[in-house]
Design a protein around this nucleic acid. Structure first.
Length: 206
DNA sequence: GAATAGATTGTCT
DNA sequence: GACAATCTATTCT
């Protein structure tokens, strides 16, 4: 299990109300905590991506698009943006920057800290498998995050929040995954990950 | 290990 | 009606 005292302190809104690329990078190593009814589940963030509308054509808010789905991205920093993708998975983001700047950080992978048994049960896998949490949809399933968490304040008294955690030793960068439709924007190195961590979704050649 | 196909549904054109 | 910030099983090397 994990130390209970550290877990109870959510990062302040000021951490998220900064440029999205800074937040994406500094979120590495932080702990994503869900006080799930079946027990508190914790993962250490090891991979993120920055999305920066309206210029960034890979973002849901590209060209200033504002819809019911992406409304969270237009709001205050420190709120969750959870959306369904490919019809069957969930993806978790945190909104960053100023109100009216439709920016967010996608959490793409976590290192499961525990309890491994509960996460493994929700994933239908053995606890030792890296497939437990090495992707955006997988980590949501493992932590029990779903559409209910959209627009939840992760800086408030929510069951879902981010707390401080051990810094990564080495940080890598790469283009974002599966946004080829965004042309030149897809090639920007806006993905951040902890080098050498086995839970990074698409391991780079090192 | 790499490449591929199929699943599945809300959202937007 | 097409597509999507994916995952899994399967089929190759």
């Amino acid at each position: 299990m994990v130390d209970g005292d550290q877990l109870s302190v959510p990062l302040a809104r000021g951490f998220f109300a900064r440029p999205v690329l800074c937040v994406a990078r500094e979120l590495l190593g932080k702990l994503l905590v869900h006080a799930h009814p079946d027990g508190t589940a914790v993962g250490r963030i090891v991979e993120t991506e920055a999305y920066r509308g309206p210029d960034d054509l890979a973002a849901h808010t590209a060209r200033g698009r504002r819809t019911a789905r992406n409304e969270a991205m237009w709001g205050e920093a420190g709120y969750a943006y959870v959306f369904r993708l490919y019809g069957m998975h969930w993806a978790f983001n945190v909104v960053t920057g100023e109100v009216g700047e439709p920016h967010a950080v996608l959490v793409r992978a976590i290192e499961p800290l525990g309890p491994l048994e509960a996460m493994a049960r929700r994933r239908g896998l053995e606890p030792s498998r890296r497939e437990l949490t090495n992707g955006p949809g997988k980590l949501c399933a493992a932590l029990g995050i779903d559409g209910h968490h959209n627009r939840v304040d992760v800086c408030g008294a929510s069951r879902l929040f981010v707390s401080d955690g051990p810094r990564p030793a080495r940080i890598g960068r790469s283009p974002r995954i599966n946004v080829d439709y965004a042309g030149a924007w897809a090639r920007r190195p806006w993905r951040f990950y902890e080098r050498g961590n086995r839970y990074v979704s698409v391991p780079p050649r090192e």
